[in-house]
């Protein structure tokens, strides 16, 4: 059973994030970390391998040099090895380009099961897993709040908490899965895990290694363009009252001026 977990290095959401002059996410300005939503994917992969008592986990990330830190964090939680796709030509790549690169890397690594987070906390598009399934021509089982893998039967089953219904979805392996924070809290890396992670193999691949023409990715190949970026005037300056028995009445007055009541 070969599992590949897709992890992304993202700007810390609790820091002030901003855009570069080219209107892409400024990845230098704020410290980066492993996207917290991808930690749930790591945890599920570890649980699948633990309950099957067999299998190996490879992490895959695409991003600048610093992205290897996110992979180290994942390796400290567990798993076997990692692949980091890094190339200067990748700056400004859109979701279509990202999915192209990740799909090529996945084909090269080989997999029975790909596990993603439900969204990257910077782009929050939740489209990469679906694009990967499309490109790889395998089953897509996404937004899983529960994941069950049967390695013997080569089957995967999820519960998907959709907008209109809760669905049980089943497919044969190989498959691409994405998991939500409902699947269970990720473990903390142990001290032993952190030390072991330093010795785990991490390969760095370039676009040339994957046989991808740099013209297919990067800012130049992006299929959309940002026309304008405007910082929103910070909210606040609101009216804050301390309740002395009259606050409810004052709020009703406020709501009335706004025509809500």
């Amino acid at each position: 059973m070969k599992i590949v977990v897709l992890v992304k290095h993202v700007p810390d959401a609790t820091a002030v994030r901003r855009f570069t002059a080219e209107s892409t996410v400024d990845r230098e300005a704020v410290p980066g970390l492993l996207s917290e939503l991808d930690e749930y994917a790591v945890e599920q992969a570890l649980q699948v391998v633990e309950s099957a008592a067999t299998g190996e986990i490879t992490y895959l990330t695409m991003g600048p040099a610093a992205a290897s830190e996110a992979v180290r964090k994942a390796l400290a939680m567990g798993g076997t090895a990692a692949v980091h796709v890094s190339d200067d030509a990748l700056a400004g790549t859109d979701a279509l380009g990202t999915s192209l690169v990740l799909a090529k890397a996945l084909e090269r690594i080989g997999f029975d099961l790909v596990i993603c987070g439900m969204a990257s906390t910077d782009a929050t598009m939740s489209v990469v897993p679906a694009m990967l399934a499309e490109r790889l021509g395998v089953a897509q089982l996404t937004f899983a709040s529960e994941l069950k893998v049967d390695p013997q039967a080569a089957q995967v089953q999820i519960r998907r908490d959709g907008d209109a219904a809760t669905e049980m979805v089943q497919a044969p392996l190989p498959a691409v899965v994405s998991v939500t924070d409902r699947t269970g809290e990720p473990r903390y890396p142990s001290f032993k895990g952190i030390m072991a992670a330093k010795k785990k193999p991490m390969q760095t691949w370039s676009l040339a290694d994957l046989g991808i023409d740099p013209a297919e990715v990067g800012r130049g190949a992006a299929r959309s363009t940002v026309a304008s970026v405007t910082a929103r005037p910070p909210r606040g300056g609101g009216q804050i009252v301390t309740d002395e028995g009259d606050a409810a009445g004052r709020l009703v007055e406020f709501l009335a001026t706004q025509k809500f009541v």
């Binding site: 901003r18 363009t225 970026v229």
Partner: peptide, 12 residues
């Protein structure tokens, strides 16, 4: 970024 920026975009 949690609604701190407004961005307009077009598909090319």
């Amino acid at each position: 970024f949690a609604a701190s920026f407004v961005v307009t975009s077009t598909v090319t």
